[in-house]
């Protein structure tokens, strides 16, 4: 518990840094006033807007005003949607979250058994097939796989909808697209981690005790092999929630990635800042989860340190 609290305290400076970077980066990209007003606007109109947005204040005052609002959950209004920016971002969050989790589930279902199997059958035909397909999976561009899946499963056979969101059926194709790509990488990771563990002395001890090979592999080896994999999985999940622009675009999936790119193009500063903030918090949270899982899996890491 103390460890948990101290990790949360450590998060605060990180968030401050992020707010700092986000705030100034957006300011560097250009004048928001010229974007918000039509080209025919007079200088007086520009000046009035600048004044009302507080853009004439010294930059550190602007930052502090901004931070005071942010702490209260106010990231400002999106001028494209005329809604609070944070609402627009949070509206997209469930879609991103669902897609990320379902892709991770698919990836895990494929990668864990495949990784274990190719490790215990090392240098056999099965291993060759598995490592071969994971190279293929990694090399295959996401948009291509997505389009192929749409062409075959949605257009040709009409099993799943072509694009959009709302039902579980809508979730299937984008999840497979993302899930298989992650599975490809995870399989290789699990395989090599497993191979290392299987060669260790405690596995020989386990065998010398007369344990069944399934227990040796699934109990003694797997738990050790998963330790490095967990970190990668948590980071992947964070990246997925943060948005996978290409897949979201191919399937018109209303996720964070799409929103963020649109906001950047439109210089919708409030949304960019809110989205970046939320993504940063999610990355921090998933790191924290990875850390906790890591500690659960490996008793050698103590909570006190």
């Amino acid at each position: 518990m103390r460890y948990f609290l101290s990790s949360i305290l450590k998060v605060i400076p990180v968030l401050l840094m992020i707010s700092f970077i986000v705030f100034f980066l957006v300011r560097l990209t250009g004048d928001p006033v010229s974007l918000m007003l039509p080209e025919t606007a007079t200088d007086q109109q520009r000046e009035d807007l600048r004044q009302s947005l507080g853009l004439n204040d010294p930059i550190y005052i602007q930052y502090f005003t901004y931070m005071a609002d942010v702490i209260q959950g106010d990231f400002g209004e999106s001028f494209r949607y005329n809604q609070p920016a944070i609402d627009i971002v949070l509206e997209r969050l469930p879609a991103s979250f669902t897609l990320a989790i379902s892709s991770m589930i698919i990836a895990t279902i494929i990668a864990v058994p495949a990784g274990i199997y190719s490790a215990i059958k090392r240098n056999t035909f099965a291993d060759l097939i598995i490592t071969g397909s994971s190279v293929l999976g990694k090399a295959m561009p996401n948009f291509w796989l997505g389009i192929m899946l749409i062409l075959i499963l949605a257009v040709q056979f009409s099993i799943f909808p072509v694009s959009g969101s709302g039902t579980i059926a809508h979730l299937v194709l984008p999840s497979i697209t993302l899930g298989t790509a992650i599975a490809a990488e995870m399989t290789r990771l699990i395989r090599s981690s497993m191979l290392e563990v299987l060669g260790s002395e405690y596995i020989r001890t386990a065998r010398s005790k007369g344990l069944r090979e399934t227990i040796v592999v699934n109990k003694h080896a797997l738990r050790n092999a998963l330790i490095p994999v967990v970190t990668i999985m948590a980071l992947q999940t964070a990246t997925l929630i943060g948005g996978t622009l290409i897949t979201e675009t191919v399937f018109s999936w209303p996720g964070m990635g799409q929103l963020l790119v649109q906001a950047v193009n439109a210089r919708d500063m409030a949304v960019v800042q809110a989205a970046t903030f939320i993504i940063a918090i999610l990355v921090i949270l998933s790191n924290l989860t990875a850390d906790l899982t890591y500690r659960f899996l490996d008793p050698r890491i103590k909570y006190e340190d």
């Binding site: 002395e201 405690y202 001890t205 386990a206 738990r223 050790n224 490996d298 008793p299 050698r300």
Partner: peptide, 15 residues
């Protein structure tokens, strides 16, 4: 049964 030469690594660290 067998006793191995590496006591430091012959027991599974996570159990």
């Amino acid at each position: 049964s067998m006793i191995f030469q590496e006591p430091m690594t012959s027991l599974n660290p996570v159990f």
